[in-house]
Simulated scan of single mutants.
Amino acid sequence: MNPDLQIVGAGLTGLTAAIEAAERGWRVTVAEAHSSPGGRARTLAAPFRANLGTHAIYVDGPWWAWLERRGLTPPIVGAPRQAGLVRAGGRLGPWPAELSRAIAALPAEAPAEESLRAWLLRHVDAKTAEAIIAVVFIFTFDHDPGRLSAAFAHQRLRRALAGGVRYVVGGWSTLVDLLAERAAGLGAQIRTRTRVPALPAGPTILATSLATARRLTGDSSLTWPGGRTATVDLGLRADGGPDWFRVLDLDDRIYAARYSLADPTLAPPGHELIQISAACAPGERKADAELRVQHLLDQSWPGWRAAVQWHRSALRTHCTGAIDLPGTTWHDRPAISRGGALTVATDQSAAPGLLAEVGIAAAQLAVQQLGETSTPAEAYERV
């Protein structure tokens, strides 16, 4: 029998959509090109269980509440007590208290029409403005967050600094397994190693990247700005390592964290897993970004080169969610409903949220919109 709904992509977005639809009693099939579900939320196998995507989950968001209602919350840990370091003006030191005070003193609302940099310069001096802009890199992955919409950046800055960040024990795959098991338990069929060459007939949710959705549909309007980031993952011997959990480089837009300090299961005994993101300007080569990362490590972890046991790096484009430029909001991003029985749910779609939450909200909206137009079976009959 034909499924009521076909979902392309078994990442966090696709699995959420599968659960939402299956809870409505729909017959769901999920096609995943990879050998296992997860998409960009996959975690590498031991010995160094590095995540492919973002590493924290915001427990104050609607997605966490959605997981709680279904008993799907994964085991989590908070950030360890080890101090974080900030690099500013070429020097390493503790988080500057004056920066927190400056952020707290900003107006509660910022305009969508104005750039973050222009808005900040009306409230703080240029040095403080650039420091705040550098902090915004952590949750936008953009090389120059000052160019983004002030409303977009400021809302996320307030939420990110309010706390509530937790790390999933065992990496993102722990959560992926919980979602996949629930979807399968509700009757959804998850077919891995299944590449979809053309747009499926019948009710469909494309839970992919915008680029893949654009290729499958031929719809050139499926595009939106995203970040360009170099990632460097290192497995290191722990002997003689420094006593910090994370380093934020305000000078070079780099964020490094020793995730195995929060979750020791991510690395073998006596070893550490550090994952690093570095903003890349248009045209900047991965090798040049890696050099900047190495200079930061030389300063923050003396002797790190001799301790390296494993190394991986990549240049990731449009893989870190949507960014909104001045004059735009999430409402202006590519619409989820594409006409008929087709919906597109990505982390760059017209949905609210922070980072991966956008894709989750898009998945929920896609299922809701398909259900409001007609039952999937009825829509299938008309296609």
Results as ranks from 00 to 15, higher is better:
374 S>V: 04
351 A>D: 08
98 E>A: 06
67 L>K: 12
266 L>A: 02
45 A>T: 09
69 R>M: 14
45 A>S: 09
161 L>T: 12
176 V>S: 04
366 A>L: 06
47 P>A: 02
64 W>N: 03
289 A>E: 07
108 A>G: 10
159 R>C: 00
368 Q>C: 08
302 P>S: 13
107 P>R: 07
315 L>E: 07
132 I>F: 01
5 L>F: 11
281 A>H: 13
83 A>M: 10
343 T>Q: 08
123 H>M: 03
206 L>W: 02
242 P>D: 06
147 R>S: 03
164 G>I: 06
226 G>P: 09
28 V>Q: 08
231 T>I: 11
295 H>M: 12
208 T>E: 03
203 P>I: 02
349 S>N: 08
128 T>W: 03
251 D>W: 08
31 A>G: 01
343 T>R: 10
181 E>G: 12
272 E>F: 06
290 E>D: 12
273 L>D: 13
82 Q>Y: 12
244 W>K: 10
288 D>S: 13
212 T>F: 06
66 W>P: 06
49 R>L: 02
50 A>N: 08
226 G>F: 12
8 V>D: 04
316 R>T: 09
55 H>D: 01
274 I>M: 07
116 L>V: 10
216 L>R: 04
11 G>I: 15
184 A>H: 06
274 I>G: 01
313 S>R: 14
378 E>S: 13
186 L>I: 07
335 A>P: 03
234 L>W: 06
120 L>D: 03
42 R>I: 11
66 W>K: 02
358 V>Q: 15
114 E>Q: 11
156 R>S: 05
117 R>A: 04
4 D>P: 13
364 Q>Y: 09
235 G>K: 00
374 S>R: 14
252 D>E: 05
248 L>G: 05
178 L>Y: 04
85 L>M: 15
309 Q>L: 10
383 V>F: 15
